[in-house]
């Protein structure tokens, strides 16, 4: 049992790393706004699937790493991702029952909250923005969610992570 857990931990860690890399890979200028919030999506999946293992603590650490990678003020991503993980911990029983499209619309709201929190705090700490384009990733994330969900679920089943 303990061995299986450690292995599963590595797989989960791997998916987070892939998410981080995807969130950093350079994109053409046209698509710069259309990048899904990969790390938050992966986080939401794991909190939803394994709420007893991945919770606000992991979200906080992941947010710190995200802050370091993005070069934003230390704690910004940590704060917004902790809040998102907490919301998912409240919602996960309902989310598991939802069909995929309904999950997607919830993802739209969750990622929207994440983006709003992040840019609201970024505004307070100095980097200003006046366009609403930063909400676009929420819509794109909602479109990506069904595929990501199916992919991660098959990963979880193949490696029997529980």
């Amino acid at each position: 049992m303990s061995e299986e857990r450690a292995g599963g931990g590595l797989i989960i860690f791997g998916t987070f790393i892939i998410g981080l890399v995807l969130s950093q890979i350079p994109m053409p200028d046209m698509l710069i706004w259309a990048r899904p919030a990969w790390v938050v999506l992966v986080l939401i999946y794991w909190v939803m699937a394994l709420p007893h293992r991945i919770g606000v603590g992991s979200a906080f650490l992941l947010g710190l790493v995200m802050d370091l990678v993005r070069g934003s003020v230390l704690g910004l991503n940590a704060l917004s991702m902790t809040i998102i993980a907490f919301l998912v911990l409240i919602l996960y029983k309902r989310m598991r029952m939802f069909p995929l499209w309904q999950q997607s619309s919830l993802i739209l709201v969750l990622i929207g909250i994440n983006q709003l929190l992040f840019h609201w705090m970024q505004g307070i700490t100095g980097t200003t923005s006046d366009s609403l384009l930063f909400l676009l990733p929420a819509a794109i994330s909602a479109l990506v969610w069904p595929w990501l969900f199916l992919l991660l679920r098959s990963v979880r089943r193949v490696f029997r992570i529980a």
Binding site: G55, V56, G57, F60, G63, V73, L74, G75, L76, A78, L79, T82, I83, F86, L89, I90, M121, T125
Partner: peptide, 22 residues
């Protein structure tokens, strides 16, 4: 049941980090 205490502690810690980083 979401871990409320841990959540509050982490949020406070994050805010502290932001303020000290700035």
């Amino acid at each position: 049941g979401a871990p409320r205490a841990l959540f509050v502690v982490l949020i406070l810690f994050a805010v502290l980090l932001i303020i000290s980083d700035l």
